[in-house]
Design a protein around this nucleic acid. Structure first.
Length: 306
DNA sequence: AAGCTATGCAACCGCCTCGCG
DNA sequence: ACGCGAGGCGGTTGCATAGCT
C-alpha cells in the first residue's frame, strides 16, 4: 500500500503538546518562518514528526487564529458554503478569517450538523428530510394530495430555506413550483383564520426569562418598518444569540425558526402594517414550544406587539 | 460520592496532490 | 514521462470534561 507515514518512527512523541513544546515550536517559527516541516522538528529541538508540528501550528499556535464561539454570521457562512462545497473544510476555512479547517469541521460535526437535523434538513444534501416529512412519492406526484394536514405538517417542520430547497426539489415534478408555494400560503391563511388570529403570546414558567432577557433584545434588533423577511428572521435569531451569550444558555442549540409570511413569498417580501406575519420559534422541548410562539397580526405594529 | 454516558475538540492516520529532479 | 517526497486534506480516534443517574 502507500508509503509509511513520516512520523512512523520510534522515539517520536505523540499525543498532547506540552507548553514547553509549544514554546519551542513558536519560537522557531517566529525566527525562521513556517515551512520545511520535515526538518523543522530536529532544528527546533522537538521530538515530533513534521506533520505533528505543522498541525499544531496551523490549528492552534498560529497567531491569527480567532478564538471563542462562532458568530451567527460565521455559522450562516459555514452552512451556506457547505451546501455548495460539501466537506471541503479547507476551502470553507479560507472564507472565514481566523478559523481553521479542523475547527470548522469539528463545529460542523458537533453542532451545526445536529441543528440541521433537528430543523428537518439533511446535513449532507441540505434538502428537507423526506423521511421526516413523509413526502412520499405519491404526495410529490399528485398535487391533489396537498391537503391541509400535509401542509400544516410541512409548516411545522420547514424553515424558509428548507422551503426554497423543497421548491427546487419539486421543480422536476411541477412545471411551476410557485403553485406549490401558493397552495401552501392559502392553507396557512386558512389555518390562521381557523385559529382566530388574535395577538397571542403564551407564557409559562419561562416567561420571566423571556421578558427580562429576550424581549428587550428583540426590541433593539427589530425596527418596525421596511424590513424584509430575511432581515426579520435574522434579527430574531440574533436576539436569541445575544440572549444566549448574556445568559449562558444556548437557546439556539435547541431552537429552530420558522417564518411564515402570509404575504406572497416572492423574496424579499416587505413587512409593513398591512402584512400579517407569523414567526414561529419551535423547539423540541415542550416547555419552550408553546411559550415561544408569537404572531404579529395584520395591522399591528411590531413594536406594539413586542 | 461513584459510576456511567454524552459531548467537544485536539491530534492522529492514511490517502491525495503537486512540484521537482 | 516517471518516481519520490513534502505538504495538505478529510475522516476518525481518543482523551478530558460535563452532566446525569
Amino acid at each position: 500500500m502507500g508509503r509509511s507515514p513520516c512520523c512512523d518512527k520510534h522515539g517520536l512523541k505523540k499525543g498532547p503538546w506540552s507548553p514547553e513544546e509549544d514554546m519551542k515550536l513558536t519560537r522557531y517559527i517566529q525566527m525562521h518562518g513556517p515551512g520545511n516541516w520535515r526538518s523543522l522538528p530536529k532544528n527546533a529541538g522537538l521530538e515530533r514528526c513534521g506533520k505533528s508540528c505543522r498541525l499544531r501550528w496551523t490549528n492552534y499556535l498560529r497567531p491569527d487564529i480567532k478564538r471563542g464561539r462562532f458568530s451567527f454570521e460565521e455559522e450562516e457562512t459555514i452552512i451556506q458554503l457547505h451546501s455548495v462545497l460539501g466537506n471541503k473544510w479547507s476551502t470553507i476555512a479560507a472564507k472565514l478569517s481566523g478559523r481553521t479547517d479542523n475547527e470548522i469541521k469539528n463545529y460542523w460535526n458537533t453542532r451545526l450538523r445536529k441543528r440541521l437535523l433537528r430543523m428537518g434538513i439533511d446535513p449532507v444534501t441540505h434538502a428537507p428530510r423526506l423521511d421526516l416529512l413523509d413526502l412520499s412519492s405519491s404526495f410529490l406526484n399528485s398535487p391533489d394530495q396537498l391537503n391541509l394536514s400535509n401542509l400544516l405538517h410541512l409548516q411545522t417542520l420547514l424553515n424558509p430555506e428548507a422551503l426554497r430547497l423543497a421548491a427546487n426539489l419539486l421543480t422536476s415534478n411541477y412545471q411551476t413550483p410557485q403553485l406549490l408555494l401558493q397552495k401552501l400560503q392559502e392553507n396557512q391563511l386558512l389555518k390562521a383564520q381557523l385559529q382566530n388570529q388574535a395577538p397571542t403570546f403564551q407564557s409559562n414558567q419561562l416567561g420571566n426569562t423571556f421578558d427580562k432577557q429576550i424581549r428587550p433584545l428583540n426590541r433593539s434588533f427589530l425596527p418596525y418598518s421596511s424590513v424584509d423577511q430575511t432581515d426579520l428572521m435574522q434579527s430574531v435569531q440574533e436576539s436569541f444569540h445575544a440572549a444566549s451569550e448574556q445568559t449562558g444558555t444556548d437557546f439556539l442549540e435547541n431552537l429552530s425558526f420558522n417564518s411564515v409570511l402570509s404575504t406572497p413569498l416572492s423574496s424579499p417580501a416587505p413587512l409593513n402594517s398591512a402584512t400579517s406575519t407569523h414567526i414561529q420559534v419551535s423547539t423540541e422541548d415542550e416547555n419552550y414550544s408553546d411559550f415561544l410562539k408569537f404572531e404579529i397580526p395584520e395591522g399591528l405594529d411590531f413594536d406594539d406587539f413586542m
